[in-house]
Design a protein around this nucleic acid. Sequence first.
DNA 1: AGTAAAAAGTTGCAATTGCAACAAATGATA
DNA 2: TATCATTTGTTGCAATTGCAACTTTTTACT
Lengths: 210, 210
Amino acid sequence: MKNLFENISLKNKEKLFKIFRASTVKFTKGLNIIDYMDRTNSIGIIDSGSIDIIQTDYDGNETLIDELITNDIFGSTIYSIVLSDECSIVTKENTIVTFIDYREIENAEFIKSDFYITFVQNLLTIIFEQMSLKNKRIDILTKKTIRNKLLTYFKQLSKEQGSKSITLPFSLSTLARYISVDRSAMIRELKYLKEEGMIDQKTKKIRLYY
Amino acid sequence: MKNLFENISLKNKEKLFKIFRASTVKFTKGLNIIDYMDRTNSIGIIDSGSIDIIQTDYDGNETLIDELITNDIFGSTIYSIVLSDECSIVTKENTIVTFIDYREIENAEFIKSDFYITFVQNLLTIIFEQMSLKNKRIDILTKKTIRNKLLTYFKQLSKEQGSKSITLPFSLSTLARYISVDRSAMIRELKYLKEEGMIDQKTKKIRLYY
DNA sequence: AGTAAAAAGTTGCAATTGCAACAAATGATA
DNA sequence: TATCATTTGTTGCAATTGCAACTTTTTACT
């Protein structure tokens, strides 16, 4: 995963910070950082730590919209409508975030300097990666049964990890939230898949037989 | 919706076409254009027309992964795993697509010319918009009932159109595919919502009472 | 205007799922 | 190592959903 300031010297990084009115903020665990953000024009880059984007609807149901980790970016430009009042951005551990003012990306003054161009290209690369992640998740979410959601996810992981023996990058509970199904129903479905000999599974270790 | 070549003269557009080894291709309706693409390094921009990205899994089920219209961009960089063998990219009408070679984005030769910078900024803007669209769809897909999926979608539209009276941008059949539920079950749920006085609906015209 | 194709709408029924309420196992921490 | 918290796993049951097989309505085209 590329870093936003890859191939940029510390000196030029500082210049970019000035251009984009950037600030780096440390948050403790369990904070809703939405109040710290300029809702309209800033994007945040996670330097370290992790964040949940959670939506709470009228009947109090909480939906995990996104889980972000180091180098992920977020912000109203990207989440637009989603990042509305009912939304909270909660740190899952101590987390460091850099905020930049997106409007300055069209700032004319530094536009031809090497470090600026490198920066924009880094940003582009990161966004492409993010897009790819979103598409993979949509690929899963559009499947109509828990079984097909799981199989689709396992196939993705298998391709990424280059093996039929895969390791989940997070807990089963988190997986259930990621594919947006009831956790107990998901574990039941895993049981069926095991019984049918489609997979072997013990907590995070899964072997595919199909 | 911003155009990829916004604020770029025809002359410079031609230069960009050379840099990115771009080609503009006209497709007739109902074609699977995946064979026309360099799968690894090109991205396509729809100049006019529309496209479905459809995945067919082992049991022959077709899933609508994405529906693209004018100015949308697509490509393996963005869809990665999704754009695999089981995937087809089908034109829904006569469609014109411009393909560019993504690798050339790091081409050093023209990197400091104004039109190149404008181009990269335009690309960035378009990708941000696409990201926003993806996030909105994920927001819907993560809801667990058809009812909540519909209400979430209506809320998004209402915000966009700035009114409680909204017009669907596509048919109910397409909506069902977009929110990835069975069409008849969706129409049944619409009926319930009408009976409970939550909405008025007649084909594409919907009024929200909540 | 006539016809073919697409979209909208209906309904019964079986399968899938979410929910609730547990128990057991694992992990973290003082 | 005792204790608390988190995660995993189980099951019954009601609610939701998908599927199939229709009819009716709307739209597109010659």
